[in-house]
């Protein structure tokens, strides 16, 4: 197992190298001049030319990439052309917001999806099953930005139950920065006001973000459980006189979860991608908003930094998924 883990971690290096080359090329293929964008359309040619020289944009592409790579190996993601701050610092500021939202959405998807999927499988071909199918279809089909605005209209504007956007109330101080995760930090600090506010602010974005993946998880759980439900060992369990609940949870659900766990790696990637839209609708100050602004400014260092970080996250998640198989299915062994 340990050898396997080490091998997988080392495999990350060529993957990240490939992604960095690809991202660098794609970012540079976009027609446009970062120096001009930074200086503004009214800026004189002399100013733009000076900026281009300062930013090293006149060098050949391979020189620019080598320079980037050598900095990257020293843990330096460069300076953002737009914010003028270190990209690493920018990402450190933005990452916790996205991470908090994604994890909560992942929890919503997993718990909600498993519950609904199990219920639909157990009560298959009943009204409950059909309703869950319609909800799943709606979850995938409804555009997230529309749903987000509708939720805001109902729960913020009309019912005044939930805040419309942001991570914390406008008059409430943020909890001190420990991890950057507001819920966790305010819990540690015992700052109940900040905790309440950040929890309330999480509800609508997390629900909106999770709905599509929740639908997928619930359908996968249902299908997987129906496949398992009538296998011989389940019948044996039943004939031994085990209660139906025990049979469903211990024998059916546990075995049906393997494809769900496989999906969760992909789900995280989908959720991370989804944050770009959700963060805009709910002004959630995470990496999604950061990268959108960076793309519009052709901020290459920021785009590269985000791409590499996203790649590391997805790869790590996939690794965790592979490892988790061992615990779910004793037949799986890694050498």
């Amino acid at each position: 197992m340990f050898t396997y883990l080490v091998r997988r971690v080392f495999l990350l290096i060529p993957v990240l190298f490939g992604i960095s080359v690809l991202a660098f090329l794609i970012a540079n293929l976009i027609p446009g001049d970062p120096a001009r964008l930074q200086a503004g359309p009214n800026a004189s040619r002399k100013v733009v030319e000076g900026l281009r020289e300062k930013l090293g944009l006149n060098d050949p592409l391979y020189v620019q990439y080598t320079r980037y790579l050598s900095r990257l190996l020293r843990g330096d993601l460069g300076i953002s052309l737009r914010t003028k701050r270190s990209v690493l610092e920018d990402l450190k500021t933005r990452f916790p917001a996205t991470f908090e939202l994604t994890i909560i959405a992942l929890l919503f998807s997993a718990i909600g999806g498993i519950l609904i999927g199990t219920l639909a499988a157990v009560k298959h071909d009943t009204v409950i099953d059909h309703t869950s199918r319609v909800l799943a279809l709606a979850g995938v089909a409804v555009p997230a930005f529309w749903l987000g605005i509708m939720l805001q209209l109902v729960f913020f504007f009309h019912l005044r139950l939930l805040p419309s956007s942001g991570r914390i109330g406008q008059f409430i101080s943020s909890p001190g920065h420990i991890t950057g995760l507001y819920v966790f930090d305010s819990l540690i600090a015992g700052n109940w006001v900040a905790l309440g506010s950040s929890l309330l602010h999480l509800v609508m974005p997390a629900v909106t973000l999770s709905l599509g993946t929740l639908a997928l998880v619930s359908r996968t759980v249902r299908a997987s459980m129906l496949d398992t439900m009538f296998l011989d060992y389940v019948q044996t369990a039943r004939s031994k006189g085990l209660r139906e609940r025990v049979v469903t949870v211990k024998h059916v659900l546990r075995n049906a979860l393997v494809p769900v766990v496989t999906m969760s790696g992909m789900t995280l990637a989908v959720l991370l991608g989804g944050t770009v839209l959700i963060e805009t609708v709910f002004t959630w100050p995470g990496m999604g908003l950061y990268v959108v602004d960076s793309i519009f400014a052709l901020d290459f260092p920021a785009i590269m930094g985000f791409t590499l970080l996203a790649a590391v996250i997805v790869q790590t998640m996939n690794l965790l998924v592979d490892v988790s198989y061992v615990f779910l299915d004793p037949r799986i062994r890694y050498g």
Binding site: W192, S198, L199
Partner: peptide, 12 residues
């Protein structure tokens, strides 16, 4: 209880 107070106050 703390969460509820927090939610109440945090909710504005």
């Amino acid at each position: 209880m703390a969460m509820m107070v927090g939610l109440l106050v945090g909710g504005g």
